[in-house]
Amino acid sequence: MRLLCIGDSSTPGGLRPCHGLAEAAVEGALSITMSGPEGVVETLRRSQYDIVVIQLAQPDTRLLRHIRNSRIPTPVIMIVRASTPAEVADALSIGADDCVSSTIEPVELLARLRAIVRRTGGHDSLSLHVGRMVVNVDRRQVRIDKTPLPLTPREYDVVELLTLRKNQVLSKEALLDNLYAGQEEPHGKIIDVMICKIRKKMREFGITDPFITQWGIGYRLNEQAFIPLGARMNAHNASATPASRETSLPVTRGINVISPISKMDVL
């Protein structure tokens, strides 16, 4: 999961992830990029992030309002040290997807982050369904027609990420950031190798083209490839059936810290 964490650079230790985020990053579950509030909209337009975390001493909705007014669709969670129910309600009404205390336990925070990312991608449970394929996030297992697909841990991560972001093209850089979560990253060619191996394994199940390659950009999940064969044949037959005619007349078919942007966004 690739996360942009926005801290308050005016306070001591402001550009550090909270305890829960730091613990999740150590486990390799998150790739965290730290940033101050300056230039955040431009950063989100330029790079792909799964979720934004705004961590503050108290709820301040100016930055959140700026992100939403700029029509940035990335989900946002606020982590605050102290808040009132009215302040939380205000943040949620403006466009925050969640607002939690900085004392939240790492396991709960990580679960909330994952749940928000899943819902944003159109998935409402720990099982991601795409035609014949089911990705069990809790078990880290992919099944095709109820049969487990033998994947390495990194290959599973690629399939899960492309399934979660099924309507987006993910660059190799974004895939690397998510897979290696701040660790020393290998050359981008490793993504091509993993995609090739996954394709080969899925061909054994009759899925010939699970991913669409956007040359020079990245990869996207090909949902059409996972449509059950029977449904595909029915759709083909329906499209091939001639229109009914009632008469003989013719019928017509109808943990890196990024530097502030030099040109600051105006809040």
Rank of each mutant, 00 (worst) to 15 (best):
L175H: 09
I227R: 14
N167D: 10
T152G: 05
K189D: 09
D177I: 01
G218C: 02
I195E: 00
Q168V: 02
R199S: 14
V159K: 12
I217N: 00
R203G: 11
Q183C: 01
Q183T: 00
V158G: 02
S248A: 06
I144P: 01
C196W: 10
G182W: 10
K201N: 07
C196V: 04
P148N: 08
I212M: 13
R220W: 06
P242R: 08
P210L: 04
I191E: 03
I212T: 11
I207H: 11
T208E: 14
P228F: 11
A240H: 08
V257S: 06
L162H: 06
D157W: 07
A243M: 05
E184C: 01
G230I: 09
A231K: 11
G218P: 10
L170G: 10
M202W: 09
N237F: 15
R165M: 00
K166I: 00
Q214E: 08
R154C: 05
Y180W: 14
E184R: 04
L221C: 07
G216S: 02
V159A: 05
L170T: 12
S171R: 06
P153F: 10
R165N: 14
V193T: 15
D157I: 00
M194L: 06
G254T: 06
L175K: 07
E160Q: 11
P228E: 09
L164R: 12
R253N: 12
F226L: 09
K166D: 04
K200F: 03
Q168H: 13
Q224T: 05
I255N: 13
L221D: 03
A243T: 01
